[in-house]
Design a protein around this nucleic acid. Sequence first.
DNA 1: CGGGATCCCCATTGATACTG
DNA 2: CAGTATCAATGGGGATCCCG
Lengths: 96, 96
Amino acid sequence: MDVLSGKWKIAIISSICYYNKRRFSDILNDVVGISNKMLSKELKELEINQLVTRTVLDTQPVTVQYELTEHGLTLKTIINNLTEWGIEHRKRIMGK
Amino acid sequence: MDVLSGKWKIAIISSICYYNKRRFSDILNDVVGISNKMLSKELKELEINQLVTRTVLDTQPVTVQYELTEHGLTLKTIINNLTEWGIEHRKRIMGK
DNA sequence: CGGGATCCCCATTGATACTG
DNA sequence: CAGTATCAATGGGGATCCCG
């Protein structure tokens, strides 16, 4: 669970996963409420855990692209399962 | 993820799951490092989320038994998946 | 644009003691 | 035994400013 710790990791992974490749500021928009500091920090951790790769594009101004590694992609199934379970759980708990 | 939040939920569920039924103080021993306050709090949350049931046994002194609900058992698969992934991940990250 | 550095708050947790 | 009550510490995360 350590790997997924922090409030945003799953949302960040989901964002990158959905778009395949994603720029820093795009993720910043996808993940509502996150600050750039947090995004930076969480991405760094994901990179250390070899779940995402960071690519600096030589544009003006600088652009940085993130994408999931193969290893990161293996998390997709797990996250999907968690998501499904969460949806079912919500139905059960919230009533309707 | 909210349902699994807190440092101990997964360990607690695992403990109850492994023994099927489990008393408060037994869980306290299983989950190394947890305090009774935390255990009490986490169990309460799990109960609210209908993942465990609490049964007070009429013994002297009082004994309280916890067990997973059917709904709680559906988490077992997920947790197992997470565990497997974690093991694989550790191999990959730590080297050997 | 992408992120590092700082400051600060408050929620989570730990330690300890107490109760039915 | 199975909690509850109280206090104190810690660190995750928000806000803001700065830099290449």
